[in-house]
Structure formats: C-alpha cells, structure tokens
C-alpha cells in the first residue's frame, strides 16, 4: 500500500475578499486513519473541508489529495477525484424530492451503468451498514435527525470512497444517535480502508473514535496530537476546549470598552 499520506496540506492560506480565514495551515491525513479537526464555531473548519474538496481555491499554498494538487486539476479531473471522495454535510443535505433509496442510489445512477437489480442490492447493502434497510421507502421529511444523518452517510459511501469528509457529523443529535454516528464513522472507515477527516466541536465523542487531532483557532493550527496527548495537554486553549470551560484564552466577553467606562459614559 502506498505509504504517502492521502491528504497533505502545505502552508495553506485562504481569505474571503480581505478577511483572512485560514493562515499557514500544515496538516496531513495518513491513509487508513481518522483525523479530527476541532475548534470553536466559525474558526474556518468547514472552509478547510471545502478546500480539500476543491469547492474553493486557496489564496496560496496547496492541498494535495492522493498526490494531486486539488486547485490545479481540470474540471474533469476534479470531478474524477470527487467520485472517489464522500462528504457528509452538517445536516445531511439529503435530496428532499427523492426517497431514501433513490438518495443512496443517486451516485450509482449518475456515474455508473449498473443494472437496476444490482443497484438495488448495493443500496440495500449500504443501508444495511447504517442499520436503515427497513427505511428505504421513506422520504427524507419522514426521518429523524439522526436517521437522516445515517442515510446521508450511506449515500456518501455509495461509491466506496478513498476519502471521507464529515462536516459536523454530531451537530444537533441526541446522545444515542450521536454514539451510533460516531461508531459508524470508525467502522466504515476501517471496513472501506478509507481515510476520514472529521470536522467537529464535539470533543468527548470524537476523542473516542479518532486517531489524531488538530486544533484550529482563528485560522491557525494551535495544537495537535493523539487523543491521549490532547486529554493531557497543558495548552490553555486546548484545556479550555476539552473541558468546556466558559472563560479562558477564549474570552467570555466579546471585545468592548471596559464595562466601567461604558457605565460612566451613560452617567455623563
């Protein structure tokens, strides 16, 4: 097996107009591993995923997937790469006008000429893997949040991808659905021989399943390590994040003039 990491990110910078989102990101996702990217909301984690998927172009630096620089690919080559990646969106992004079955079959019908009987068997296999074979006739509006997430997961693995991307897979789930999704991410990764990158801010759940963690804050990587290293970490930001403390390096207050001054102003 190729020992070169599946995803390599070098000196990546990205800004929207003049607003800097990411600066100097270096990150690798080794083959067969599950890597988490953590950080508070709005720190540029989702942007990072879009850069890996080629939906955005970096301002400088490069993202290499399977040895190819993503932003230099032709549209055809980019589409060819995307066929080999799967992405789970924050709220599933199921096609609301199709049944669960058709959602999972979507990519097979678009990209392959497989006969309908074979597609049926493959879809059932994928749905079985996420435990929702019985729900194949339902419409997305009839699913609970956790079920929708699992269907979306089945859809994203429908072409057996080499790279799985998860955008906030745990957001808004009850504890049971949350651990189901967590276990699925790990099991599917190992079963498919894929590599996975999980963007999340759910520390406890992800520490259970991932191999390596990057912490992103204000567009920079501030810490990295295995789950145990992160738990033991003395870095103030990581400590605040892992233990969920309200105040710390990330202040409770939005930047403002000192409170006393503002009160005095009102008096004057």
């Amino acid at each position: 097996m190729n020992q070169e990491p599946l995803v390599q990110i070098r000196d990546l910078n990205f800004s929207y107009d003049s607003r800097k989102i990411l600066s100097g990101i270096n990150l690798t996702i080794p083959r067969g591993k599950v890597v988490a990217i953590m950080g508070s909301s709005g720190c540029g984690k989702t942007t990072l995923l879009r850069l890996i998927g080629g939906q955005l172009k970096p301002s400088s630096g490069e993202v290499k997937v399977n040895g190819q620089v993503v932003h230099e690919l032709s549209p055809e080559a980019l589409y060819a790469m995307r066929r080999r990646t799967g992405m789970l969106f924050q709220f599933g992004a199921l096609f609301t006008d199709m049944s669960v079955f058709d959602n999972v079959a979507f990519q097979m019908r678009e990209h392959t000429d497989l006969p309908e009987e074979l597609i049926h068997d493959l879809v059932m296999m994928k749905l079985h893997a996420v435990g929702l074979r019985g729900a194949h006739n339902l419409m997305p509006s009839e699913l609970s949040g956790g079920m929708a997430r699992r269907v979306a997961l089945a859809r994203s693995i429908s072409l057996d991808p080499m790279l799985m991307m998860y955008d906030e897979p745990f957001a808004g789930l009850d504890p049971i659905s949350l651990s189901i999704v967590g276990v699925l991410i790990r099991k599917l990764n190992d079963a498919l021989g894929a590599s996975s990158v999980v963007v999340t801010h759910d520390v406890q759940e992800s520490l259970k399943i991932v191999d390596y963690i990057y912490f992103v804050s204000a567009g920079k990587i501030v810490a990295e390590g295995t789950a145990d290293e992160i738990r033991q970490s003395k870095t103030p930001y990581v400590h605040q994040f892992v233990w969920g403390e309200a105040d710390g390096p990330v202040p409770f207050h939005y930047p403002s003039v000192p409170y006393g001054d503002e009160l005095m102003q009102a008096v004057n």
Partner: peptide, 21 residues
C-alpha cells in the same frame, strides 16, 4: 423556491461534491 431551498440545505453543494454538476 425549490432551487433556493436546495441551495440553503446544501443539496447543491452535496451534488457538486458527488461529482454531479
């Protein structure tokens, strides 16, 4: 409304990521 909602719920993005234009 239909296309707008598909965009708002990231369905169009998801399609793009599935290599479907």
């Amino acid at each position: 409304a239909e296309i707008g909602l598909m965009k708002a719920t990231e369905q169009l993005s998801a399609m793009e990521m599935m290599a479907v234009n």
